[in-house]
Write a protein that binds this DNA or RNA. Structure first.
Lengths: 241, 241
DNA sequence: TAAATAGTGTCTGTAAGACAGTATACT
DNA sequence: AGTATACTGTCTTACAGACACTATTTA
């Protein structure tokens, strides 16, 4: 297969290792969590037994593209096939992997909280949902601390002016639920009236019937109109309630 | 060197090709330009003779990191050592390079217009400053059309709420010059009064004495306070003058 | 003194935060 | 009826766009 062109004379140099890592977020038990996996406890392996972001080498046979590779890893770890997925950046240098010059393509994904029957809410022995604050303090493998920090920074930043938190909820959801998700990610309260105006004016939500089930007045249920892209607002949030 | 750990059994798979490409912008003759290079006219080579973005394979021996590699390519093509440099994204799949599965790390750089004595203003036979509109219509090598489109989109987008155009000018510059640069990149006029308030309030500029030399009233000269990061504004521009 | 360009002041519209008020569900 | 929650209306403030005005330079 391939090598349709004659092998150029300049092509016989050492190639870097290429990995894809995915920072997977969800909101669970009222706080923002990230999925960490435990590296195999094998002395052959770099960082044995340490927590790390899910990821691994690109498989030239199986993966048609970087995004395919990211989706594959996400599906393997969470069973979620259609998340919000965004490229975060890439990190590559001679020292980040003891096995050699390596470059990592990092993605970040937003998924709704796992239900009790899938894979267990709290994770398993080699895979766990960890509070972002706590994950930031852990001594993760490779340069995953800076990748995680970049992901959290990007998420917190974009929440100020996009509809990203909508992808952290199961549909349909109500505006109070969405507001709560914003508050969890931002780490501060936001004004109810301003919040509702903002979300409804942005026009990315679609009414989908009343949602009942708890005490108090019933709320309108919504879903996002176009799950392939986030809405952006013209202005950032200010202080709050 | 390296290979300090025993070669793991799972490490003998095919590695993708890894390249770094740089989208280099400047403002020349009143319009936004991008640097294109001509690929060698060699049948061994993919896309012989076609225009492409400057870039090439990561050299594991010479490049300590991806950014180093990007800076090296920029310096080789333009002689500029301290540009504004930002990671744009990465593109990788089985088909973008006929020589095999390849991934490209793309950066974009903003530099001031080349002076007449360096390398020639319009470029040379194998390297040319091209208007972005025209470059967008060219049939560039590889998937460079989509990388270029992403870079232009990112630049135009960020100009709405950052100080990026300041990096397209030689220091010191005046506020009218800066406004003109914004207008060139945005492709539309902006209001003078609002513009000045915005720039001065953002506090990223530093007065550096009056600038004379042409007809009309002399203007204050400025330089950016911290060349390592762009300022961001709370709001986006609206329509204009 | 006129032309050209730099810089300022004032008005207005828009949109968000504050917060109190109204509506509708369940017990 | 009372409580809990969803939703709306009104006031105020901040800030950007519009645009006319003043200031300072060169010809």
């Amino acid at each position: 297969m391939k090598k349709s062109l004659p092998r150029s004379p300049g092509m016989d140099f050492e190639r870097p290792l290429v990995t894809v890592d995915v920072v997977i977020f969800c909101v669970l038990e009222g706080s923002l969590k990230v999925l960490l996996v435990r590296r195999p406890n094998d002395v052959q392996d770099p960082f044995p037994g340490r927590w790390a972001l899910p990821g691994g080498f690109v498989n030239v046979e199986k993966d048609r593209s970087l995004i395919d590779c990211a989706l594959r890893k996400l599906d393997e770890k969470t069973g979620v096939a259609t998340p919000y997925l965004e490229q975060l950046g890439s990190w590559g240098d001679a020292d980040r992997d003891p096995r050699g010059w390596s470059s990592a393509h990092a993605y970040f994904a937003l998924i709704h909280a796992p239900t009790d029957n899938e894979e267990g809410r709290r994770g398993s022995a080699d895979s766990q949902w960890v509070d972002v604050e706590e994950a930031g303090r852990k001594r993760l493998a490779f340069d995953h601390p800076r990748i995680l920090a970049a992901a959290i920074g990007r998420l917190r930043g974009k929440v100020e002016y996009t509809s990203l938190p909508a992808f952290l909820l199961t549909e349909p959801f109500t505006l109070p639920q969405l507001q709560h998700t914003y508050e969890v990610v931002l780490g501060r309260p936001v004004d109810k009236s301003a919040f509702r105006k903002r979300m409804l004016d942005a026009g990315f939500l679609e009414e989908v019937g009343m949602a009942q089930g708890h005490s108090g007045r019933a709320a309108m249920g919504y879903r996002v109109r176009d799950r392939d892209q986030a809405a952006t607002f013209p202005r950032t949030f200010k202080a709050g309630e």
